[in-house]
Every structure is written in C-alpha cells, then in structure tokens.
C-alpha cells in the first residue's frame, strides 16, 4: 500500500535503507579519503530518461573550500555495494551517465 505515504512501511525495511545510505557514505569517504568536515549527500531519484533504469542514485560531496564532487549510478539504492560505489568514483568521468 501507499509507496509515497509509507503508512505501512516495514520498520525493518526503513532501517535497512538508512543503513544502506550510511554505508554508501562510508564507502564514498573511504574511496575519496574524506575527513569529518565533508558532507556526503546520498539521494535516490526517479530517472525519466529513455533507456535508463527507473532509479538512480546521486552521491554528492561537499567539503569546505573545495569544489563539489558528484557521482551518478544508474541503479536503486538497495542494489549498491562497495565495489560499485568505488568503481563509480574512480571512473574517468564519475558523473556516470551520458545525460548528466
């Protein structure tokens, strides 16, 4: 029932999502060698571009006195693992999508 409202959302699923988001932050910090002063934003968005998967994850890094860095991975948040996050950040164009 009711995805947008999440009225009957399974508490365990909510905890898993929070943990997954934290893990993506940790993997990003480890890959980029970020300290505590950086803020990492992890957002799952719907992607309406033709030919793209319906979900994508945008990871953005905001560190003091440094340009913003961002990375886009075309899959759902739940499907991410450390190797995928690491590979996305270390790719020559970490934006990760032709339509970025």
């Amino acid at each position: 029932m009711a995805d947008l409202l999440r009225l009957d959302r399974d508490p365990a699923a909510a905890l898993r999502e929070t943990a997954q988001r934290a893990a993506v932050r940790d993997w990003t910090c480890a890959t980029l060698g970020l300290g505590e002063s950086a803020t990492v934003l992890v957002t799952e968005l719907s992607c309406a571009e033709p030919g793209c998967p319906p979900r994508e994850v945008v990871i953005a890094v905001f560190a003091p006195h440094a340009p913003r860095r961002q990375c886009r991975i075309h899959c759902a948040l739940a499907e991410l693992d450390e190797s995928r996050v690491r590979a996305a950040w270390l790719a020559p164009t970490p934006c990760g999508g032709s339509h970025d």
Partner: peptide, 27 residues
C-alpha cells in the same frame, strides 16, 4: 551554490553552500 541533482529539474535542486555550512556548523 545551486546544485541540480537531476539535470534542470527544479524539484531536485538544492543549495550546496547551505549543505556545506550546515555540516560544519553541526561540529
């Protein structure tokens, strides 16, 4: 600092400068 997470979509646009400052303020 305007940050468009999804190209040109106003609904997915946030303020990067605020994110930075709020992060450092929390320390």
């Amino acid at each position: 600092e305007i940050f468009e997470m999804n190209n040109g979509c106003i609904c997915c646009t946030v303020r990067g400068d605020l994110i930075r400052i709020l992060g450092s303020l929390m320390k």
